[in-house]
Amino acid sequence: MSACVNLENLTLGYDSHPAVHHLNGVVRKGSLTAVVGANGSGKSTLLKGIVGVLKPMAGACTIAPGVKLAYLPQQSELDRSFPARVVDLISLGLWPRRGLLGRHRSEDREAVSQALSAVGMEGFEKRPIDTLSGGQLQRALFARVLVQDADLILLDEPFNAIDARTVTDLIDLIKHWYGEKRTIMVVVHDLDLVRQHFPEALLLARQPVAWGEARKTLAPDNLLRARQFHEAWDENAPWCVPEEARNHDDPAHVNSHDHVDHADRRGVA
């Protein structure tokens, strides 16, 4: 199967500290992948890098041409005090189809109301968004992803603040997308949920620990290794030098460290 997202030696991070470190791999078209890992292991950062709102510090992340992308962020920058109704919020999802100027047609309005009922929010059309509960807002955002009708769907902890019954409904939706051969990546914390419903998983601990079949990825020894990364930033951490530059003197080195030592760090960390 062909690649949907191609990650080449991808390093993403903030303020010269990597949050995702040297990630290589391919997200196949039509795959359903759970992204798991501890707090600060780089899950959300990876999704931001794929969406393109965070530029890579090194390496590259390429999305196959023509792939439409939908992204449900962990922390939405939504302004809840803005005077808008639930339909206005969900209709934003029509942007990929209608763009800036295209008229919203009757089939678009139909798609919006279908998405609302798919997340169990019939009758919420005219509600101002500042009157929604946290879980209702999350479901409305999920409905917007539905309306976007994207080929690549990135969901960052979509089950936060959502009641058990709705989680089941949303997982059914995700499986329905999977059946439609869409490519889906979901950041999840509930490992049982992953073992039960996700064919593939990527276990991150800043570096990738394992990536593949979900049950194998979540095997106890992998989970143990994933726990052994140091979450806090180390201001004195040595600079990570690419292979070809290793043989040159790098003036940016904070601590002088010999190359063998450096290679070892990368190997085990």
Partner: peptide, 19 residues
């Protein structure tokens, strides 16, 4: 630019992800 302006006020991160 109405639609873009509303989107930029309501949910700027969403607008960045689609446009």
């Amino acid at each position: 630019f109405w639609r873009a302006l509303v989107a930029e006020c309501l949910d700027p991160l969403f607008l960045r992800s689609v446009s």
